[in-house]
Design a protein around this nucleic acid. Structure first.
Length: 224
DNA sequence: GACCAGGCACATC
DNA sequence: GATGTGCATGGT
């Protein structure tokens, strides 16, 4: 008998959790650091983001939102250089802090009190914050039950025939949010586990045979 | 040296 | 609405 999407999503989650355990995401100490990391990691390896965050910390830029807000864009770009796209990302960070300053009096804790819909509307309007970055901030910085969809999610779950390879962000997000409980803990862990799996098994073809999800989907070519 | 990485905005058709 | 392109570093 064919298993429902709900059953399959749960089964994959359980398999990954049993294999890897809790991932302890997001790898950032404060809300500020999580938000900055979410913007810096756009299309960029996390190892490069770590270098940029280290450099920001050493410059004292992550002690409060006011630090980056008052910093010159070119100085900020220099500090985040290892994360790549440094001119674009410096502007994007500035744009976020502009929102924070103008709409939330520069107060991240205050921002955290806003209703999810209001927060999402504000974040998504920031130039440089798209759906994934927005939802990463909502889930990991503000603990809102929002599922984060990234390129790995589409790659893996399209191979399991649960969504299309080029499905729109909202379509894939709905797949998870319709079929899983609206739980911060589960959404947090599931996304982190997907990244963990993808990093280990989805980059190179020879590793495909060892992919832990291989047995869960007969039709899917899981990692090729 | 080529390819890829936890996107996004913008131009063009 | 769909597709192509620029943005850039560092690891494999």
């Amino acid at each position: 008998m064919k298993r429902s999407p709900r059953g399959r999503l749960f089964k994959i989650y359980k398999k990954l959790f049993a294999l890897y355990g809790p991932q302890g995401w997001w790898p950032g100490r404060s809300r500020l650091e999580i938000i900055v990391g979410a913007i810096l990691t756009q299309n960029t390896a996390w190892t490069n983001v770590e270098k940029a965050i280290k450099s920001l910390k050493e410059a004292g830029a992550l002690t409060s939102p006011a630090c980056i807000n008052s910093m010159r864009r070119d100085k900020l770009a220099r500090l985040i250089r290892p994360a790549g796209y440094y001119n674009v990302k410096a502007s994007r960070l500035k744009n976020f802090f502009d929102l924070l300053h103008k709409s939330y009096k520069g107060n991240i804790a205050g921002m955290g009190k806003a209703p999810t819909e209001e927060l999402r509307r504000d974040l998504i309007q920031v130039n440089g914050i798209g759906p994934e970055t927005c939802d990463s901030i909502l889930l990991y910085a503000f603990n809102r039950p929002v599922f984060v969809v990234d390129a790995y999610t589409k790659r893996i779950f399209s191979r399991h025939k649960l969504c299309g390879r080029d499905a729109e962000y909202g379509i894939v997000q709905n797949l998870f949010m319709r079929n899983l409980p609206h739980s911060v803990r589960i959404y947090n862990e599931y996304h982190a586990l997907i990244v963990r799996l993808a990093k280990e098994f989805c980059r190179t073809k020879p590793r495909c045979a060892a992919c832990p999800l291989r047995s869960l989907s007969r039709a899917a070519i899981v990692c090729a």
